[in-house]
């Protein structure tokens, strides 16, 4: 699991998590990720004095089909896990697919349920499931992205990190996800005044690297966004959409996709379609979870820990 330059096989990742008990911390030092036992002295040392935040993704409020008839229940378990973290996160990033069908009632349930998070600073970016209303994205924006630009993109600074929320679910052309020229122009202008030593965290729903284009697990113009990020020494890209943990490091850029709290999806290309993966009920919680991220002073790398709902 060291020195990965390609997505980590889920089976392998799970083995590692089982071995670690509470999950695996990914310390990316000098562009090379290393796994570290969570709870070990090293992990504690690594995260001392860190700026701590959480990523939650793909709740799909409204989903209740066979792959998880109680997606609301597992979302609540994920929230309880975050609320129980020994160090409360300073903020939470939500990487989209908050709802399943963009229905007002689903948005209401989402607001109410996510309101149970003790950390109140939650920053959202929409998934394609959140922009299915007749005026695409309006229901999402009025609840979760007030004051954002264009289709819902924005940036902010916290804990010495520059956070950028990108929207790649609003392109209505046949084909694959797109960031689009307007947003790319905005991104270039937004990054212009930042120093190259500023750690950058970019979060968007659909992966910003080509994982499996046949299933739409890519963003066609992601390379244009990455070109704007090239001069920065520490770039972390956090995505959702594919309901599983995959990671890749390319130069100074570390890519991570997250687990869902609702249902798992198959590994790239390992099923006829990317539809919900049906697993025995006692295995479901090992495939759902949340992620915590530490920004450690003096280190260019962020420490990323994925915790499943089955972990203690």
């Amino acid at each position: 699991m060291r020195n990965e330059t390609r997505p980590i096989a889920r089976r392998q990742a799970l083995k590692c998590m089982a071995w670690a008990g509470a999950g695996v911390a990914w310390a990316v030092v000098g562009g090379v990720p290393r796994s570290v036992l969570v709870g070990s002295a090293k992990a504690a040392e690594m995260t001392a004095g860190a700026f701590h935040f959480v990523q939650i993704s793909d709740n799909h409020f409204g989903f209740g089909k066979e792959a998880n008839p109680d997606a609301l229940g597992t979302a609540k378990e994920a929230i309880a896990k975050i609320n129980a973290m020994p160090t409360p996160p300073s903020l939470i990033l939500h990487t989209g697919d908050i709802t399943h069908l963009s229905k007002p009632v689903e948005f209401d349930i989402a607001q109410q349920t996510l309101g149970e998070l003790r950390t109140k600073d939650i920053f959202f970016t929409p998934g394609e499931h959140d922009v299915l209303d007749q005026d695409p994205g309006s229901l999402y924006r009025e609840r979760f992205a007030k004051g954002s630009k264009g289709d819902g993109w924005y940036s902010f600074d916290q804990g010495g990190v520059h956070f950028v929320a990108l929207v790649n679910v609003m392109s209505f052309a046949a084909g694959n996800a797109k960031i689009g020229a307007d947003q790319l122009d905005w991104l270039a202008a937004d990054l212009k005044s930042r120093s190259a030593s500023t750690p950058i965290v970019v979060f968007a729903h659909i992966p910003l690297w080509p994982i499996y284009p046949d299933w739409g697990w890519n963003t066609v113009d992601s390379e244009l966004a990455l070109a704007e990020l090239k001069r920065f020494g520490s770039v972390t890209v956090l995505n959702g959409h594919i309901h599983q943990v995959l990671q890749k490091v390319e130069g100074n850029v570390a890519f991570h996709t997250a687990m869902s709290t609702a249902y798992p999806q198959p590994r790239p290309g390992e099923a006829p379609s990317p539809g919900p993966l049906k697993v025995p009920a006692d295995q479901l919680r090992r495939l759902l979870g949340v992620r915590s991220i530490d920004v450690v002073p003096g280190k260019t790398a962020l420490a990323v820990v994925d915790t499943t709902l089955a972990d203690a």
């Binding site: 394609e128 499931h129 922009v131 299915l132 052309a173 046949a174 694959n176 739409g216």
Partner: peptide, 12 residues
């Protein structure tokens, strides 16, 4: 008339 699925734009 071509058409696609907004959720899965590879479906045309």
């Amino acid at each position: 008339y071509t058409y696609f699925c907004q959720l899965h734009p590879f479906m045309t």
